[in-house]
Design a protein around this nucleic acid. Structure first.
Lengths: 214, 214
DNA sequence: ACCTGAACACCGTTCAAGT
DNA sequence: ACCTGAACACCGTTCAAGT
């Protein structure tokens, strides 16, 4: 039932990931937990569908030219894709946290992957390179999004009053720490896009289909 | 108590993250749950200390020259750091999953950061660049490590029997999907290292201290 | 002073009993 | 045929009662 998923997502957005229990959801629906099991096989099934509901939001607003336009088309495509995924997941940090329990394999996630892969292929990526690039960028976004938290971490003071003798390097960089999750995300993404550019310009010593000799 | 943490880590390694409950841990210690609360303020406290125990393993074996040696020193340092973190966390996938509940702020995590930051500074990184690079690489490793799972995902068949009409791009790349988590990790890491190289060679249109105009 | 059985308030899931 | 109260087997946490 769509209403159940809508209420579940609302519960998640308003009270966080730990609030999404079968009992609280049933109560929010003025029902009993047993009734939920007539619509979902298990809590994991429910969670998977809530997650896929969020992936459905990625269909809208491909977000266009958010950043400077002096770059190659494929680079903008990759950036837009990753940005958009991150922004949508960021609207539902509670749901993003649930990704650790259920990998996104629902229909909306499948559609999102299809659209992304099609864009990469159309942008001139060779097949194996397209698959690897999408997989890596998507996993990158998911890994960061999962770490989104409603409470804004208080690590500020963790570095402020640090023993300069025991932690000289950390102490020296205290004013630059902590780096916000968003800043880390955008910085790392730009690095990967730059790296992809270098790969496409000249495959270099690490061939595209075996970048890691490990 | 060190014995408690050792048994907790063993429980985690042998039976996964969901097996680390206060009751099962107490039972493995031939004790009661109430006794655990004389050593730990809460389950979260226990989990944080187990996680920090894993970070303690990062002290050993800096892993040296794992990869090709034709590159710059700072690049090898960054790669070794990320590889080593990933390998150690990969030895305890159950513990890595717990990172979603507790950010690594224990003493061993502090030491690991101090060592890493010192290496970056010694490798010629400017202060803010060092802070940002470490934060991003560490978060990158954590995001991937959290997604490590004991069970080897069975998404293979997800792409095998896919409707070619509805998912043409995905279908075309079915033989290259799914990409393993490890492959994604190493590929993305190399991209970031390449990107960092480009940044250091010429700061370019995105200055080092503001890579994202968002 | 130290320990712990038993309780409390939760949780996911199931099923017999109701309509 | 559909629904659900109540139970079962868990969970984190606390505390009175024991030693």
């Amino acid at each position: 039932m769509d209403r159940i998923l809508a209420v579940a997502l609302q519960l998640l957005d308003e009270h966080g990931a730990e609030a999404l229990t079968m009992r609280r959801l049933a109560e929010a629906l003025s029902s009993g937990t047993a009734t939920l099991y007539r619509h979902f096989a298990s809590r994991e099934d429910l969670v998977a569908q809530v997650v896929d509901q969020v992936f459905a939001e990625m269909r809208d607003e491909p977000s266009g030219e958010l950043l400077g336009g002096g770059e190659l088309r494929w680079q903008n495509a990759c950036r837009d894709m990753a940005h958009h995924m991150f922004v949508v997941l960021g609207r539902h940090p509670g749901a993003a946290r649930l990704l650790i329990d259920v990998p996104p394999t629902g229909p909306n996630a499948m559609n999102q992957r299809e659209r992304s892969l099609a864009i990469l292929l159309a942008s001139g990526f060779e097949p194996r390179m397209a698959a690897r690039t999408y997989a890596t960028l998507a996993r990158y976004v998911l890994g960061f999004a999962m770490q989104l938290t409603s409470a804004p971490g208080e690590e500020q003071h963790l570095f402020a009053g640090l023993d300069a003798a025991r932690f000289p390097a950390t102490h020296a960089l205290a004013s630059a720490l902590p780096v916000s999750l968003e800043e880390e995300f955008f910085f790392g993404l730009e690095l990967m896009l730059k790296g992809l550019g270098a790969l496409r310009a000249r495959p270099g010593p690490s061939p595209p289909d075996d970048p890691s000799p490990l």
